[in-house]
């Protein structure tokens, strides 16, 4: 398989806003939170310019962190890289298998059991029966949910949901992994396991794009950081330099996560 790569050139994405009660009210609200990025097009429709003229490229081994305020366009960029939103102008070219972890319950059905959801995810990814069996075994051993695997995920705690989601997403080895910061909600023991697994994946010359608010996470995981501001790239460079400019002070590296004794997770899973 060819090496993974991501090419983004002159990418812009606009959000047309059609469904609302009061346009004027909406306009007023949005101009506050979006820093004046609301406008009307030729047909007088209200649009939000979510992404503006982005150009960057990633190659095998890159671990990109996206930082910026809420509404800076981080999630929209992840969705566009995943092919969910198609660009209004510009181009997105991704070589390699993509997997996007944008929402912990992504594509999962709350009324199905953990096991059934694994099968469903396998089908979403076009896997055959054998591959789904392997997926199930892998997710089961990694997520460590024990008997909960046979219960509807509606009753899962958010941590359990994250473990299942993370295990699922990383079991189907993507070459390009797009991730929102939700996965950090896992317990300490799980974080250690997650780190090993993620590092393993990135070492296999894959690409990670991670959107995060946490400087510790970005410092630990990323080799490059893009600072998004009002849909544009404000700064692009090594994590410490960009974070320092973003925070206005030198970034603090996160404390290494100490694995807890094995018993802790067994209790948690039962």
């Amino acid at each position: 398989m060819a090496a993974a790569s991501v090419e983004v050139s002159d990418l812009s994405v606009d959000f047309p806003l059609y469904h609302g009660t009061s346009r004027s009210l909406k306009r007023r609200m949005f101009s506050t939170v979006s820093g004046g990025r609301m406008g009307a097009d030729a047909k007088n429709r209200v649009v939000v310019q979510a992404l503006r003229d982005l150009t960057f490229s990633l190659s095998s081994g890159d671990r990109l962190g996206l930082i910026g305020q809420n509404g800076a366009g981080k999630t929209t960029l992840l969705r566009t890289l995943a092919g969910i939103y198609e660009p209004v102008t510009g181009r997105v070219h991704v070589e390699g298998t993509i997997n996007a972890l944008l929402d912990p319950s992504l594509g999962m059905n709350l009324d199905l059991t953990g096991r059934e959801n694994i099968t469903l995810r396998g089908l979403y990814n076009g896997l055959d029966e054998d591959e789904i069996k392997r997926l199930e075994a892998d997710v089961e051993s990694f997520a460590g949910l024990g008997e909960f695997m046979n219960l509807p995920i509606r009753i899962y705690s958010s941590g359990m949901m994250v473990r299942l989601g993370f295990a699922l997403a990383t079991s189907i080895r993507p070459q390009v992994l797009l991730m929102d910061e939700w996965f950090l909600a896992g317990d300490a023991m799980f974080m250690e396991k997650a780190r090993v697994r993620l590092e393993d994946m990135v070492r296999g010359s894959e690409i990670l794009v991670l959107s995060s608010h946490s400087e510790g996470v970005v410092m630990e995981w990323c080799t490059r950081v893009i600072w998004m501001d009002q849909g544009r790239i404000r700064m692009d460079g090594p994590p410490d330099i960009v974070l320092e400019a973003y925070l206005g002070r030198p970034p603090v590296r996160a404390q290494p996560v100490k694995p807890e004794p094995e018993t802790a997770i067994v209790e948690a899973a039962e």
Binding site: R91, V92, G126
Partner: peptide, 13 residues
């Protein structure tokens, strides 16, 4: 696609 998965995506205007 390879093995039912997206292996390359090229989206443009």
């Amino acid at each position: 696609t390879g093995a039912g998965r997206v292996t390359s995506m090229d989206v443009r205007t």
